[in-house]
Design a binder for these strands. Structure first.
Length: 773
DNA sequence: ACGTATGCGATTTTT
DNA sequence: TCGCATACGT
């Protein structure tokens, strides 16, 4: 880490450019509005800052930090500033740095909840029976560990899935429930063995000298609760505490904050109850209410002036969120001119939705709007496919935000397992993961024997392996390859002391045969896996040493996304929180999709309100224009279903929305039909469909691709599948596909091509998705 | 040890 | 419906 001592930090600060020093006492205060300024200047005592969407929250927050340092209320190292994501922490670091000129490097306690806790836990690990070198397990490791335990305990994994237990663990840890303290009525797992399994799991982690994500918080809370001296030390250290996205905190995080801030009581929590969308992850909006109870003298400041969106968008969003019962209440306002109403558009189905949005994007682009100024925000990732297909078809550059992450890929995790095993040979989970990958003839049987010995003597698998080399319990074949493996690990361990860690990684990947394994693999993904391994070595190069790198990847699961190029963004509503775009598309506003059926089923009114907040988040991402779509038909689990427009559409204030549909699509123009947004495909007479040019067009366009939605049966002549026109391509021809790259056509069937792609292997793709090279 | 059969489930996701 | 994960057979 780039810790700087306090002295260094201040030196850097004093040596900041003269231009900044010359600007007067607090130049940064001048461009704040009154409540923002209050948020910055109310430094003493508890502060609850309710910051609506787009109200300059980050600005207030970073300025507050800068002000604390600038006025010398606190040394940078006396400020605790926590965020939820690495991205937010990074942004805060940069912005504070911009304000005070680099001294922020000396803010050692600005980071995510988890990174701050790792830091504390490494210092006091022994207080919870860990060594300070503990490793951090990610979800995947955690599941594998639980599987093992369930197996050993003789529990049927079909009736009691490991994932289910993992989520129970999660819920307990979010609430700071430690192993001995599980309420009896929550022990239902495996016929009442839930609490017992928690204890076993916890014990297993301790012997592995490992923690899971939840433990990072829970252990620190435990330490602070049971060691008054340690607690006092941190309480005195942190003169000021600042929390971002406070509405997302869970109970454990709340307890942690309350403990740490108890001495100076200078705690500032920033949040927005209307943007609380992570309840399913343990976040408790109630923490906002509890704050006012725990700190009755808290100053409550509201940021309500919005600098992002037009009045029309704000009005629509405000009208919607006003339907929620449980909220503190805020009224966003703006001085911007009115702007276009929020557009609502009904379409035939998801393909038509994608087609229209694609067309809209192209039209906007033609008018000079940058692609990077547009975003499509979906409720769930399965909705993305239609858009990706459409964008590829149109040749529209797009970027998916979120999605599968680099460090979670199989090959990367395998490489990490090798590295971790070399760093700490007793890392059983890593041993197990890669001891037979690539295949070395160490099958289930050999591993079972190792496990038996290891468990019997309470030693690690690696140590057990060494013992087995001296006995004849293993078959000669297995023993030979085990010897080879153990010797290789020893060799790498030795080498680790002499050579740079990147070279070590290359050496391991090479000598273990891991790279070779993927080179010999002819599956489509093998190529990209090899690429990823190269990228991994490159990423390692950015770190001082192996330990630093491994620690980083365990907490920062993402690689900085390539933000180059002008592209449309495609992401879930959750991923969109905190972002803004001039033009925002909101597809799939249908009952069951949004609000999601499952949320409503599982959490009732509360779930519905969270969905509504999600809709609010979506709308408030838009700066100039928001367009909501809903489809009359949607394929759910392969079946066509009629869809009803989302209740959220009804809840939008009529004077700020504009219902647009293809001419004649729904008969009369929207303005003549009060309550039109409630129209529902099932109520429209069939005749309307057949006689309606709009529908016919939509239908003809989609006829090529898939089975017809309901209500169209009996009109087969319009639904001829893949017209047998001669293909524009020939077998053997080289083509290009946006998603799969270059390839050669091996067969043609109607409008589908079988292609051998150079990178992605054999695939069947639609002719319309490829282009000649 | 590797391939096929079969069944199940299917939101949101950070660390 | 489709993709996956586990289970069984060669």
């Amino acid at each position: 880490m780039n810790d700087m001592s306090e002295e260094d930090a201040f030196e850097a600060y004093e040596q900041r450019p003269l231009s900044q020093q010359a600007m007067g006492v607090s130049p940064y205060l001048s461009d704040l509005n009154p409540p923002q300024r209050e948020a910055v200047e109310t430094l003493d005592g508890p502060v609850l800052l309710l910051a609506g969407a787009g109200t300059g929250k980050t600005k207030a927050l970073t300025t507050r930090l800068a002000h604390l340092i600038h006025t010398r209320r606190a040394w940078p190292s006396q400020i605790l500033a926590v965020t939820f994501t690495n991205k937010a922490a990074r942004e805060m670091k940069n912005r504070v740095g911009g304000l005070i000129g680099g001294a922020v490097e000396g803010m050692p306690w600005l980071g995510t909840f988890h990174s701050v806790c790792v830091k504390i836990l490494r210092r006091h690990a022994e207080l919870v029976e860990l060594k300070s070198s503990f490793t951090i397990l990610d979800t995947d490791d955690q599941i594998r560990l639980i599987k093992q335990i369930i197996d050993v305990e003789g529990i049927d994994p079909k009736r009691w899935p490991p994932r289910m237990f993992a989520s129970m663990l999660d819920r307990w840890k979010n609430r700071a429930v430690s192993p001995g303290k599980v309420p009896p009525d929550e022990c239902g797992f495996a016929n009442g063995r839930g609490g017992e399994l928690y204890r076993i799991y916890h014990e297993r982690l301790r012997t592995l000298n490992a923690v899971d994500f939840g433990d990072l918080l829970l252990h620190v809370v435990t330490i602070l609760q049971t060691h008054p001296d340690v607690l006092a030390d941190y309480q005195q250290r942190f003169k000021y505490v600042l929390v971002d996205e406070y509405q997302d905190t869970n109970v454990a995080q709340y307890l942690l904050l309350r403990l740490l801030a108890a001495e100076h009581r200078n705690i500032c929590c920033v949040g927005d109850d209307d943007q609380s969308i992570y309840g399913w992850r343990g976040a408790e909006v109630e923490n906002i209410l509890r704050f006012e109870k725990d700190f009755p003298d808290a100053t409550v400041i509201r940021l309500e002036r919005n600098y992002r969106s037009t009045p029309a968008i704000l009005a629509a969003a405000s009208g919607l969120i006003a339907e929620n019962k449980s909220r503190l209440g805020k009224t966003l306002w703006t001085e911007e001119p009115d702007g276009d109403p929020v557009q609502i558009r009904g379409v035939w189905d998801a393909d038509e939705e994608a087609r229209q949005i694609g067309d809209d994007i192209e039209a906007a682009q033609a008018k000079g709007v940058k692609l990077s100024d547009m975003a499509v925000l979906v409720r769930a990732s399965f909705q993305m496919r239609a858009f990706e297909e459409r964008f590829i078809h149109l040749g529209l550059p797009y970027r998916v935000i979120g999605g599968p992450r680099f460090f979670e890929r199989e090959e990367i995790r395998d490489a990490h397992a090798y590295l971790r095993l070399v760093k700490s040979q007793d890392d059983d989970l890593s041993f197990e993961r890669i001891c037979n990958k690539p295949r070395r003839g160490l099958g289930d049987k050999a591993l079972q024997t190792l496990h038996l010995t290891a468990r019997g003597q309470s030693i690690s698998l690696m140590r057990a392996a060494r013992l087995m080399l001296e006995t004849d319990e293993l078959r000669p074949q297995a023993r030979k390859s085990l010897r080879g493996f153990v010797e290789a690990v020893d060799r790498w361990t030795l080498a680790a002391a002499d050579i740079p860690h990147t070279e070590l990684a290359e050496m391991i990947l090479d000598e273990s045969g891991y790279t070779e394994m993927w080179k010999n693999d002819k599956s489509p993904q093998a190529g990209s896996k090899l690429d990823n391994l190269k990228e991994l070595v490159q990423a390692m190069g950015e770190f001082e040493n192996l330990a630093g790198y491994l620690d980083h990847v365990s907490l920062v699961m993402e690689l900085d996304q390539d933000s180059s190029g002008d592209r449309v963004s495609l992401m879930t509503l959750h991923a969109a929180k905190g972002l803004e775009f001039p033009l925002v598309f909101l597809p799939g506003w249908e009952e069951g999709i949004f609000p999601s059926q499952r949320s409503v089923d599982e959490k009732g009114q509360e779930g519905l309100e969270e969905e509504r907040r999600l809709a609010y988040v979506g709308l408030t991402r838009a700066m100039e224009s928001a367009r909501i779509f809903f489809a009359a038909n949607r394929q759910v689990y392969g079946r066509w279903q009629n869809a009803i427009p989302s209740r959220f559409i009804d809840e939008l204030p009529k004077q700020h929305i504009d219902i647009v549909s293809e001419p004649g699509l729904y008969g009369a123009p929207a303005s003549n039909m009060p309550g039109l947004s409630r129209f529902d495909a099932t109520r429209v007479e069939e005749d309307t469909y057949y006689d309606n040019p709009g529908w016919r067009r939509a239908r003809a366009a989609k006829a090529r691709k898939s089975a017809p939605p309901p209500l169209l049966e009996g009109k087969a002549e319009l639904m001829t599948t893949s017209a047998p026109d001669a293909s524009a391509y020939a077998v053997g021809e080289r083509i290009f596909h946006q998603k799969f790259g270059y390839g050669r056509i091996s067969a043609i069937e109607g409008n589908k091509l079988a292609v051998d792609f150079e990178k992605a292997g054999a695939k069947r793709v639609l002719e319309s998705f490829v282009e000649k090279t």
